Amino acid sequence: MKVKILLVIPVLILVAVGYAVIRPGTNAASKPVAPDQTGVLQELSTVLHKMDTLTVLTIEGTITARDLVDSSRNMETTFCYTRNGQEAYYRVGRQEMISLQDAYIVVAHDVHKVFLSPPREVVNPMKLSVGKETTLLAEEGYAITRRVNEAGVHISLLNRRHPTCRAYDITFDSTGWIKQTYMRVTDEAHPTDTTRDKFIGIRISSCKPGVVRKELLNSSRYIKISNGVAVALTGYELIKDR
């Protein structure tokens, strides 16, 4: 069994997952947005790029998901991410993923297995420039709103007919730190059927630039080397992919 999970900067993948499925060109005939709304889209893209250069940080929060078709896939759980340069740790619920200099480790607590594979690069999913993203988003037919209240700055994109992402909302503080996001994404196989949509919410409870939880990046927490490689967790099976 091979586990192919790419460890990305999670605050970006979590808050940008709905943003990322807004595929360019799907609404090419849409009416162009007003200049003031273009400014809002640029502000949104700038916020999502804020952490592009941060390589030492720790983020914690909660994730909620609701599937209108399959309630067994609904979830509400916590996540933790800590990064120190090209090493990173990411936990969602009880599944842990660790990218180290010499190994990539996935701990699946639900099945009591530890997957060990060669190291992988910690990558950033935000590939386009702020200007390019703004231009592409402006062509997607979204109604764009921006408001400010005691919770912070709130930007909302809404297009009930969009084939991939019907709604995307984000709240951030006055300095640009993201506090929460919400997205409504379609079923790729049935994009016009709203009864098959999925809802994902992310709330960030703690974001600490410059802080790293070094104990979570210690390989001996997961595996031990003594006459070969073995699992450091009692009762867990080691599966190597090398």
Score class of each variant (00 low, 15 high):
223 I>R: 12
54 L>Y: 02
119 P>T: 14
220 S>D: 15
82 T>Y: 12
86 Q>E: 10
54 L>G: 00
132 K>R: 15
103 A>W: 07
33 V>M: 05
109 H>Y: 00
30 S>D: 06
17 V>R: 15
237 E>H: 08
230 A>S: 15
233 L>C: 04
199 F>I: 15
198 K>F: 06
111 V>Y: 00
85 G>P: 00
16 A>Q: 10
114 V>C: 04
169 D>T: 08
83 R>A: 10
204 I>T: 05
7 L>F: 02
79 F>P: 01
155 I>T: 04
160 R>H: 04
219 S>W: 09
83 R>T: 06
144 I>L: 05
163 P>A: 14
64 T>L: 09
7 L>R: 09
113 K>Y: 00
14 L>V: 07
227 N>T: 04
94 R>M: 11
206 S>L: 15
74 N>T: 01
106 V>S: 12
125 P>H: 03
213 R>D: 11
151 A>H: 03
68 L>H: 12
212 V>G: 00
140 E>V: 09
108 A>L: 10
99 S>Q: 13
228 G>C: 02
126 M>K: 15
95 Q>T: 13
127 K>R: 14
215 E>G: 02
161 R>M: 10
207 C>W: 13
177 W>R: 03
152 G>R: 03
198 K>W: 06
73 R>L: 15
93 G>F: 05
109 H>T: 12
80 C>L: 13
146 R>A: 08
96 E>T: 05
68 L>N: 13
175 T>K: 07
167 A>T: 05
159 N>I: 01
22 I>Q: 01
105 I>E: 04
143 A>L: 07
4 K>D: 12
194 T>Q: 07
229 V>L: 08
219 S>M: 09
